[in-house]
Lab assay of single mutants.
Amino acid sequence: RPMNAFMVWARIHRPALAKANPAANNAEISVQLGLEWNKLSEEQKKPYYDEAQKIKE
């Protein structure tokens, strides 16, 4: 299954978030990633939607 825009973004940002929160488990990191993603504007998300579309094609 191809990655969606959030997954493209999260793949880039997960390592830094995990390093900054070494005690957090994957579920907690995923929740935090979701919160951070939701704070982004549509303009900030656009490159990730574009990349996800390329992956689908």
Rank of each mutant, 00 (worst) to 15 (best):
R1W: 12
M7R: 09
L40E: 01
S30N: 14
F6K: 01
M7K: 07
K39R: 09
E28G: 03
L33C: 04
A23H: 14
L17H: 03
S30M: 14
A20H: 07
R11N: 15
K45E: 00
Q44Y: 04
K54Y: 08
Y48P: 00
F6T: 00
K19H: 09
A24P: 02
A16I: 15
G34K: 15
L35Y: 06
Q53K: 15
Q44F: 05
A16T: 11
P2N: 09
N38W: 09
W9K: 00
K45W: 01
V31L: 11
P22A: 04
K45G: 00
L35I: 14
P47W: 08
M3F: 12
K54T: 09
A16P: 03
K39E: 04
N25W: 03
E42I: 12
R14P: 00
K56P: 08
N26G: 11
E51L: 12
A23G: 14
N25F: 03
G34N: 14
N4S: 13
E28C: 03
E36C: 07
K56L: 15
M7G: 06
E28M: 13
P47Q: 05
I12S: 07
K39Y: 04
A20E: 10
L40N: 01
F6S: 00
E36M: 15
N38R: 13
H13R: 15
Y49L: 06
L40G: 00
P22I: 03
K56I: 14
Q32Y: 10
E28Y: 09
S41W: 01
L17A: 05
L17T: 04
S30K: 11
K19E: 10
N26V: 06
P15D: 09
P15W: 05
R1G: 10
A27T: 11
K56T: 14
P15M: 08
N4A: 05
N25A: 06
K19W: 09
S41I: 03
E43R: 10
R11H: 14
D50E: 10
I12A: 10
L33K: 02
N25K: 08
E36L: 15
Q44K: 08
A18Y: 07
M7I: 13
K56A: 15
Y48Q: 00
Q44D: 12
A27R: 13
Y48K: 01
A10E: 10
A10K: 03
E57V: 09
K45H: 01
Q53W: 05
M7E: 13
A10G: 02
K39A: 09
A20L: 14
K54Q: 11
S30P: 01
I12E: 12
E57G: 10
I55V: 07
Q53L: 11
N26Y: 12
P22S: 03
N4L: 12
E57Y: 06
A52F: 10
Q53C: 05
N25T: 15
E36D: 09
L17M: 11
Y48A: 01
N26D: 14
Q44R: 05
A52K: 02
L35T: 06
Q32W: 14
L33W: 01
K56R: 11
W9I: 00
I29C: 02
